[in-house]
Every structure is written in structure tokens, then in C-alpha cells.
Amino acid sequence: MKSWSVGVIGLVCLAATVAGAYSSPQILLAVAVLTAAGVGIGWPHFLGIPARKTLAVLIGLPGVGSAVAASYLPAPGFLDWTPSFMAVGVMAIFVMQLIRGTGQAQRLESTLGSCAGVLLSCLGAGWIASSRFNGVREMLLVAAISAAIALMAGLIRWPDRIVAPLGIVGAGLAGPLAGLVFSDIAVLPAALAGIVVGAVLVSFRRLVVLGGEGLGLLAAVGMGLGPVSAVGSLAYFIDKLLIY
């Protein structure tokens, strides 16, 4: 698949997340569970590491558990169990690598890359936390719009030295504009949220570029959903630290 398909998958995930947040908690949970499963299945394919089926389970299940916990834990501890799911996932990755034994191919790359996948899978619960926080979804919408602008900038087939600043600046401007139009969020927190979200997404774009044009479907899914998942927790903590 072409590298631009990764951005399209991310945009679809963002649209589904916003639609779920404004429809019902059950739909948002379903979107978060599917996102975690997609990261789990696709991330090992993007990394090109062995034992992909086993790693898909070990990466995806912690994210699913984190999303379910964020949906049902009482306020304000929406993400209280998320670090535990991350820890269990990382430990499971290490145990699995020990079982594989020494001398296995790409053992170090598999361990480190899979641990990163666990973190990405679990961070998607932040979208649920952001939606439940104070019963207000304003920061979720601001983060989603900023992320969409950064992803669309990443679709432009220009060098990173041009696309990266363009994506960050565009997301940083989109945040305050979305805040002014759709919410009462102050300009500074909205701009900070946009800049941080844009920086994260354009950083992942570099990984896609390094991967070349030969991405398979599952690899594109994992790489498209991973950074969008991470943005959810960023939005939640920015909302909690700077706005609440």
C-alpha cells in the first residue's frame, strides 16, 4: 500500500472516535476496542518481526482492557488501571521472548518494538477518559481536529523538512480556531494541545517514510491507528492539567 494510506486510516479512526464520543459510551468503547485490536494486529507487521500472531494478542489485549476500564471506572480515576495494563503487557512481552529462547531472530527489535506497541495500544483509553472528563467533550474535539490537520498535512508528498513544520503549525493554529468555534477553551491551552498533537503525528510520519511504499495492509492499519491512539491520552492530560 502507498504511504498516504496510513494517514487516511488515521483520519477514519479519528472520525469514528468523534462520532462515538457524541453518540454513546458503548459506541466509543467499541471504537476504542477495535483501535486497540488494530494496533495489536498491525504493529508487528509494521515492525516486520516474527511471532506476529502471539505478539498481536499480547499488544492488543492490554489496550482492550485499558479501554474497558476507562469506560467503567468512577471519576476521576478513568486511567488508574492503564499503567497496570501497560506493565502486564510489557511483562508478557518479556516472558514471551524468554520462552522463544536465545539466538532467535530479531529478538531485541521484537522486544523493544512490541513494548512500544503495548504503550500505544493502552494510550487509546485516553479518548474515553477525555470524553468522560467533566461530561465535556470540548478538548476531545479540539485534539481530533488538530490531529486531522496534522494527518492531512502528512498526506502531502513533500520532504519532511517542509511537511513537519507545516503539520505542527497547522495543528497549532487549528487548535485555537476549533476552541473558539466549538468550545470555551482558552487560546493558549488549545494552541498547546494542537502543537503537541501535531508534533507527535509528524514524528510518526517519519517512521512511515522510512518504511517505504511497500507497506502491507495490516502494517498500514497498525501505523495509522497507533499515533491516533496515543493522541487520546495527550488530549486528556492536557485537558486535566491546563484547563480543569
Rank of each mutant, 00 (worst) to 15 (best):
V202K: 01
K240S: 14
S23V: 11
A32C: 15
G222P: 12
G135Q: 02
W127S: 08
M86A: 10
L123W: 15
D239Q: 15
L210G: 01
L201M: 08
A21I: 03
I243T: 02
V31R: 00
G65V: 14
A37P: 01
F237M: 02
V136F: 09
S146A: 15
A148N: 04
A21N: 08
L34Q: 01
P176W: 07
A147K: 00
A19I: 12
G126E: 13
S233Y: 09
S233H: 11
L28C: 03
W4Q: 03
S114Y: 10
G103Y: 05
C13R: 11
A235C: 13
I27V: 08
A171F: 09
V88F: 10
S71I: 07
D160K: 04
M152H: 03
L58C: 04
A70R: 05
L217M: 06
I156S: 06
L242G: 08
G135M: 12
L188D: 06
A230C: 14
S183A: 13
D239R: 13
G226M: 11
S66P: 10
L123F: 14
Y22V: 01
I49P: 07
F182S: 05
P74M: 06
G38E: 11
G10C: 01
Q97Y: 06
R206H: 08
G38H: 08
A92T: 12
S5A: 10
A190W: 02
T54G: 10
A92Q: 04
V18R: 02
M152P: 01
M223F: 06
S183C: 00
K240Q: 15
L120M: 14
F237C: 03
M139P: 11
I128K: 06
W127V: 02
A32N: 15
C122P: 13
S71Q: 10
P76V: 03
A16Q: 02
G38C: 09
A143Y: 03
I168E: 05
L234M: 07
S23K: 00
A75W: 02
L11K: 06
A92I: 09
L98H: 05
P83R: 07
V33I: 15
A16V: 07
L120H: 09
I185F: 09
R157L: 02
C115P: 00
R107D: 02
V228Y: 05
V208W: 00
L217N: 02
A105I: 04
L141I: 06
G170K: 05
W4M: 01
M139K: 13
L177E: 00
G232I: 10
L108G: 07
A30T: 14
L241N: 09
L242S: 07
S121T: 05
G77Y: 08
L47N: 04
A171H: 07
A30E: 05
G63F: 00
